[in-house]
Amino acid sequence: MTDDHRGRSTRLDAAVRDRGIDAPADSALADASGPDSGPRVARVPEQHVHDTFSVEGIDTKRREGLLEAVLRDRDGVSAASATARNGTVGVHHDPSVSRDDIRETLTACGLVVDPADRAFEARRASQFASARVAVAVLFGLMVATPYIAVLYPTRIEWLFYDPMTVSYLQSLLDSRMATHFFVNLGALSGIAFLVACAPRIRRALGALAEGRLTTDALFVGGVAGLFAYSTAAAFTGFDGTVHYDLVAYAVAGATLWAHFGAADPAAEDHGAAESAGSAPDAEVAEGELADGDPVAMTDGGR
């Protein structure tokens, strides 16, 4: 029996052989993760507890199935689920089976288990990182749209619309309506900056408190200065150009780069685990479950 990803035998394969466990068929794995298959469920005794582990080494669907089979083969384990995309393993087990016992089983299968048991912290950090990306992108679009529709045509007249339309847009900006217009833009760009760049702001303030000038401090100072300049230009007699659009673009660009292009040193102490599903003993049809039996979703909600 060989690993289907690297073409060689692994400690997980050896554990399956030693226990005499039948490896799950590839077709069964495909059916279990199909779009119309729905979540798998298993009976879990009421007294059983659930533990989640953050692990490294589950890199194929086949290894998910093998690991689940090994865990379910343990005495006292009623359900187990391994999720490669999250790097997490969930186990329902009797209280007599300790968390250390489960960790030893995972380690014996050749997996690297987070020694600090930070699966939930890692999931939370990943969820917050995704939320920051959503805020940066959505709020950035909400700021960019009025700029494209109203402000850019008045600044680059030869590129947009006819002179009469540009004159009308400029009259709107010269009226009292502009105050409400800029209040909305300032609020959107400011909230995006504070929410999406919160880890970067904390790192910048910490570095400055220690007397260090870092790239985070330069970025935060530059964006804050640009926001202050734009606010002065929008709401005082200072004759300047309002650049809330540049604030939004900088926030969105930095957030997307930190999330997809470079590791963010703030949350990435934990890794990028999201959520561990509850775990299974066997797939059971809904009608076969007793009314009072607790039910575990066994495939991480796939």
Rank of each mutant, 00 (worst) to 15 (best):
A232R: 08
T145N: 07
A187E: 06
F128R: 13
A196M: 07
L205Y: 13
F160R: 05
D114M: 01
R176A: 10
A108W: 02
V143A: 10
A224K: 10
L151I: 14
A233L: 07
D239R: 14
A187V: 15
C197I: 02
T179V: 14
A122W: 00
S167N: 13
D174L: 11
E157Q: 15
F182L: 03
A217R: 03
V143N: 10
F120G: 00
G221P: 07
A134G: 01
A224D: 07
Y161W: 05
A196W: 06
A233F: 06
P153W: 14
M142F: 15
E210V: 00
L208R: 03
R132V: 02
L138H: 04
A129T: 04
A196L: 04
L226C: 11
S130K: 13
A198G: 03
F139T: 05
V223H: 11
V150G: 06
F193D: 04
G190C: 06
F160Y: 15
L173D: 00
A233Y: 11
P115M: 07
P199K: 02
C197P: 00
A116D: 15
L173A: 03
V220G: 05
E121T: 08
V133L: 13
L111A: 02
Q170C: 01
V135F: 08
L185I: 04
D216G: 01
A187L: 15
V223G: 14
R132Y: 05
A232M: 13
A187F: 15
A228R: 05
I201M: 15
L169T: 04
T215P: 01
F227D: 02
Y161I: 01
G222W: 09
I148M: 13
V137K: 09
F235G: 09
D239F: 12
D174W: 09
T154Y: 12
A209G: 12
F181D: 02
P163V: 05
T214D: 05
G140I: 08
V112Q: 12
E210T: 03
Y168I: 09
S130L: 11
G240L: 09
G222M: 11
A232H: 08
V166C: 04
A217G: 08
G221Q: 09
E157M: 07
E121S: 08
D216T: 01
M177R: 08
G186L: 08
D216K: 01
V113L: 01
A228F: 14
L185A: 14
P163N: 09
I201P: 03
C197M: 15
T214C: 03
Q170M: 07
S171I: 02
A122N: 00
P153A: 11
A108F: 02
A116L: 11
Y161E: 08
L138F: 12
A224M: 10
P199S: 09
R124Q: 07
C109A: 15
L185N: 12
A144L: 15
L208V: 05
A234H: 04
S126N: 13
A116P: 00
A187C: 07
G240N: 09
R203W: 02
A204M: 04
G221N: 11
S167M: 06
L159S: 06
A144C: 04
L185P: 03
G221D: 09
T214V: 05
F181Y: 15
D239I: 02
A131Q: 06
L169M: 14
Y152K: 05
A217T: 11
V150T: 14
